[in-house]
Design a protein around this nucleic acid. Structure first.
Lengths: 221, 221
DNA sequence: AAAAAAGGTTGACATATGTCAATGTTACTT
DNA sequence: AAGTAACATTGACATATGTCAACCTTTTTT
């Protein structure tokens, strides 16, 4: 039995009609095309997009199911079409530490495992039922080499990613817990609404109790 | 009066002879060429390297002088040929928070300011007298577009950078201070020897006193 | 509707880390 | 050699955060 139904199947279940399913498919890829064009100076030609499209496979991950599990090599990177996922490590004592929270139009995967082909030390699972477009490394190498816009997009996204992650490091070494939280709320209001507090606390490197108290004090002001 | 002598001048001062100076110049760029080739699948042709070389300008930054100052836009990225630099922010109370420590064969610059053309919130200064090869953004765009090996190198370096920085975030949310320190010592033994403890403490997000005590306890075991 | 599960808050207390001041040590400057 | 500055260590104490347990609310499941 197939635990994870195919993405197409999932879309069908969602909308109930095959006709609408195909329409949704089109919409998903159109959205993706716009996303790519937003990050490059020259829009993709139809032919180029055809190549890109053939490299990305829709995939559904149901709530609480893994996209990547500790010990596996990260063979796919995923673009979230709809849904919410979290990336976390588990320490000696079995405590989960959130290192990433992602929603629509974000990418998920473990770069280290992906690049180095080493077993991942992270888990990535779905916090909500999630629709992804996934791509293999081989295909990524292909389209990055062949299609300048994709090359440009990947470079820009790496840049943005580096910038975001640098800010997070700066916050972690230079801000106390309460500032880190307000900083987070200002930077990612959409995440605050999608994930419960105890996950955000973990993301910030504090306990849920501390976050609860920090929030209370912030209200008092 | 020129506070920062030209890089060539600096080399001359170091070695004392113009002949050796030119030789050093050659060696510096040969080293740089090897560095680039190490990160790409096809070596640079002589012609390509000529272009690259023309884009990188030697620069000397004396100990305690700024490479980038808070409020400036980061116009140059630098490759450290010899020396040691630190990148830090300064908080409301005037306390410095180290966000980066760099030595030979590392790159320095503020990605956010560089990419977004916004005033930097960081300072970068020399901890030791430092020789750099610096490049402007315009030139970077040129060679990344024109020379596949450079494109590849930049992408790979961004990848490595992302991986390293991701590990640091994971450490900061999931490890206590003592583990963060041993982790750091294992990951960057060369930095431990080049920078004093209070800078490393700041890099780890703890005070120098805490680091001193952490080290003492670690010895006891 | 009842039960269970997940999330959130609060209090009491323990622990880790920060702060401040004094002192020791090392390396550099004159 | 003396003096100074930078770095490191230590102690006493304050503060922030963690831990554990109880309790409450909301949502989900049965």
């Amino acid at each position: 039995m197939q635990l994870v139904p195919s993405a197409k199947q999932a879309f069908v279940e969602n909308v109930g009609h095959v006709a609408e399913c195909n329409l949704l498919y089109l919409l998903v890829f159109e959205n993706f095309r716009n996303y790519i064009n937003k990050y490059s100076t020259t829009p993709l030609t139809d032919e180029q997009f055809g190549v890109v499209r053939s490299c990305f496979r829709p995939k559904t991950v149901r709530k609480r199911q893994y996209f990547l599990q500790e010990g596996e090599v990260c063979k796919y990177f995923g673009f979230i079409v709809k849904g919410a996922m979290r990336q976390y490590s588990v320490d000696d004592k079995g405590v989960e530490h959130i290192v990433g929270l992602s929603i629509e139009n974000w990418w998920v995967g473990d770069r280290e495992s992906w690049v180095m082909l080493t077993p991942s030390t992270y888990n990535i699972d779905a916090w909500e039922d999630t629709e992804l477009l996934v791509v293999t490394k081989a295909d990524t190498v292909q389209i990055v080499q062949q299609i300048p816009s994709i090359n440009e997009m990947v470079r820009k996204m790496d840049e943005m990613h580096s910038i975001a992650i640098q800010k997070r490091i700066n916050a972690s070494v230079s801000l106390p817990a309460d500032k880190r939280y307000t900083d987070f709320v200002n930077s990612y209001p959409s995440l605050v609404q999608r994930f419960p507090q105890h996950l955000i606390a973990s993301y910030l490197g504090i306990t849920k109790e501390t976050l609860s108290r920090v929030r209370k004090r912030a209200l008092g002001k």
